[in-house]
Design a protein around this nucleic acid. Structure first.
Length: 106
DNA sequence: CTGGTGACTTATC
DNA sequence: AGATAAGCCACCA
């Protein structure tokens, strides 16, 4: 377990319901702006072990990064259940839903 | 060790 | 807005 991993896990675990975070944002907050892919890997791994809100993590486009339409639909449903309503084509308004508390040190 | 791959990102066109 | 390309980094065969 590297410090980066712990931070990523901690950040993801602290995302409040109704908010989302992008892979890049998490990577940056964890100290590695280039580690978006590692965030993905960690998230995928840790989701199985821990109980992380993986559905609140999306890509920089404000879009669900999954490829399987079925899984995307499921994630959309989970987000909707938390008050996040994507646009007509599945686009999420980052300006409104992006969680900035952890990105901007208060 | 080498090469392929990915729930990514940014830059161009 | 959608498609392509290149960059980046850890993990696995």
């Amino acid at each position: 377990m590297t410090p980066f991993s712990e931070k990523v896990i901690q950040i993801i675990a602290s995302i409040p319901a109704g908010k989302v975070l992008t892979y890049g944002a998490i990577a940056t907050a964890a100290g590695n702006p280039r580690a978006a892919r590692q965030v993905v890997r960690l998230l995928h791994s840790s989701t199985v072990k821990y109980d992380l809100p993986w559905h609140r993590v999306i890509n920089s486009q404000g879009r669900i990064a999954l490829k399987d339409a079925t899984a995307v639909c499921e994630q959309e449903a989970m987000l909707a259940a938390e008050g996040i309503h994507p646009g007509p084509r599945g686009r999420i308004n980052l300006k409104q839903y992006l969680w900035t508390e952890v990105l901007s040190p208060h």
